[in-house]
């Protein structure tokens, strides 16, 4: 059996759950709305026009991890996983299909969010965004999409290990909201390598940590890959 039928099945599952579609819509909404709001505030001392444009990502990512966690945790309700694995007994292939089905719509919606945020953010910032080059803008928009997709995958991997969406979110959301904000201020430390901190470098015009825009996204990708690997391993090892 090839990969394509398993993927098609997982994509149907995503498309046919209204809560997941709302989750994707929330990514777009939260990212663009909070980006626009951030542009109205010009009191910051360390004003970064690019990050101001993508400020909403901090909120959009909550929706993205909720989407990723829910897409996986739906399988752990009432024996759904048994039916899924009876249909696709190769568990690693099944989980890979699930990950692609989570990652690809998240990437698409992330890129759209990036594009809309950029357009809205620039409009709100007006002349204050004049220092941004075309290359920086593109980097930010693409980076926004990739970052949101990676966070959704990160959450998906953790949800597969914990077998619960609630547990996943009650770890990740406080982590993103508190830990990262608290230790995040200290640049040049190990905090730079946290999944969200590292991946958000790509959204800044200027950065001073150990990681650049793409290496930062690379670190986030490693986090996501590690979570997915742990999820796949847990899926393989345990009874369904």
């Amino acid at each position: 059996m090839t990969f394509a039928p398993a993927l098609r099945s997982e994509l149907i599952k995503i498309r046919t759950l209204r809560s997941l579609l709302w989750g994707l819509a929330a990514v777009l909404l939260a990212t663009t709305a909070f980006s626009a709001l951030a542009g109205l505030d010009d009191s910051g001392e360390e004003f970064d026009p690019l990050f101001s444009t993508f400020f909403g990502v901090s909120f959009g990512q909550i929706a993205a991890i909720t989407f990723g966690a829910q897409a996986v945790s739906a399988e752990f309700q009432g024996g759904a996983l048994r039916l899924s694995l009876a249909a696709v007994p190769d568990r690693v292939r099944w989980f890979a299909a699930k990950a692609v089905a989570v990652g690809s719509p998240a990437l698409v919606i992330g890129l759209v969010s990036g594009g809309v945020s950029l357009a809205v953010g620039k409009a709100v910032l007006g002349s204050r965004a004049s220092t941004l080059t075309w290359g920086e803008e593109l980097r930010g928009a693409v980076g926004c999409g990739v970052y949101l997709a990676l966070m959704a995958l990160f959450a998906a991997g953790i949800a597969a290990v914990l077998r619960s969406g609630v547990a996943t979110l009650s770890i990740l959301i406080p982590f993103l909201l508190i830990v990262s904000f608290v230790v995040g201020g200290a640049s040049g430390t190990v905090a730079d390598f946290l999944p969200d901190k590292a991946g958000q470098v790509v959204l800044h015009e200027n950065w001073d940590g150990a990681l650049g825009p793409w290496t930062g996204l690379g670190v986030t990708a490693l986090w996501a890959a590690a979570a997915l690997t742990a999820g796949a391993w847990s899926m393989r090892r345990r009874d369904a």
Partner: peptide, 10 residues
């Protein structure tokens, strides 16, 4: 195996 296998919202 389990009548609850189908997701309620689908």
């Amino acid at each position: 195996l389990d009548a609850q296998a189908a997701h309620g919202s689908r």
